[in-house]
Nucleic acid binder design. Structure first.
Lengths: 188, 188
DNA sequence: CGCCGAGTTGAACTGAATCAAGAAACGTGG
DNA sequence: CCACGTTTCTTGATTCAGTTCAACTCGGCG
């Protein structure tokens, strides 16, 4: 539970009362490898903080999945659009390894939003940080090559290569597994 | 000013007092074609609602600009990351035609955030809607061809073709002007 | 009128997709 | 703990979309 408090304290000054208020609503949950935190078609009920593990976000396809995100220890993950709008989502979130998270439910979060300014502040901060992430990725698609995106991914998350199948990474950077295999060969 | 109120009312129920509070801080501003709403290197001071006109968001380059967004009548626009973090931004926002906006300054918006729950709510809503936009674009980069992205752009914004130079559109969908010229030829 | 930036068109080249086959790794049941 | 089948990864050959470089046209503006 220290990790999640530390995360918030990088973003705002957190009073003890407020932390109490928030952390009272947190629940620990464990997901085994290949199980779903959220399944396509369902409505996201939780905002989760990854205490340990790695997850993958993807749109399931008849032929191939479309992997569009990963999340690691020390970050929030959620089918955030589904969570916000409380409508069914079109993608799944899957644990790539055994994963432990702290979760807050939609209803409890709304309650916090209602009773405290910090709540809404936090909601804003979370939304804003997700927005900034996507913005960076947009620019990367416009101006970097697949090879550059691959290299960036590994300077940011060196542990990736160990736990994440190549085909998911290929999908994430927007190329086929064959192409990524060749890129990898070329640069090593 | 009706347009902007209408925009909010699609998102939340707006009380008259709250609308007063907010609209008192709005200022009308006109930008002539090719002038800047925000210039790369400066810090964004405004969140702007486009009453009339079209703007283009781009990272200036020595050789070529990198155009990564457009905004139209009836939408908000801002160098939102710079606005949020109050640090200099690395892109410019330029009027493509004579453009009229309603602006709220950073300081005034912070004040609204402080004094009302609706303020923070609105901040959240704005952040969330920007996030959803970027998410859709991310998926499009992963699974659509350049041609598909071009077609989508025009079904959504048919007026685009009239006012926006081809080379900006090409940049936005991630290809060269030559390639877009050929796509256009092929599909007509 | 002449210039300049925007758009078009052509030809050669390149990165990645596709199709296909073989090798390695992985998980499950015996 | 091994054997088998399945999935993942690699490698090769071909094709294709888009890039690059270059030449030419068109329209607007000094």
């Amino acid at each position: 539970m220290e990790k999640i408090r530390a995360y918030f304290e990088t973003k705002l000054q957190l009073t003890d009362e407020y932390w109490q208020l928030f952390s009272n609503h947190l629940e620990e949950k464990k997901y085994s490898k290949k199980s779903f935190l959220t399944e396509a078609g369902s409505t996201e009920q939780y905002l989760s903080f990854i205490d340990k593990g790695i997850v993958r976000l993807y749109i399931p396809g008849e032929i191939d999945d479309l992997t569009f995100g990963f999340a690691f220890e020390g970050n929030f993950v959620s089918a955030y659009d589904s969570f916000l709008t409380q409508t069914p989502c079109n993608y799944s979130i899957e644990a790539l390894v055994d994963t432990t998270v702290w979760q807050i439910s939609y209803d409890n979060l709304q309650r916090i939003y209602e009773i405290s300014r910090e709540g809404n502040f936090m909601g804003r901060i979370a939304g804003e940080s997700l927005f900034l992430q996507k913005s960076r990725r947009e620019i990367s698609f416009l101006k970097d090559s697949a090879e550059q995106r691959y290299l960036q991914l590994f300077t940011q998350h060196p542990q990736l290569i160990k736990y994440i199948p190549l085909k998911y990474i290929a999908s994430y950077i927007g190329i086929t597994p064959q192409a990524l295999s060749r890129i990898r060969k070329r640069i090593t």
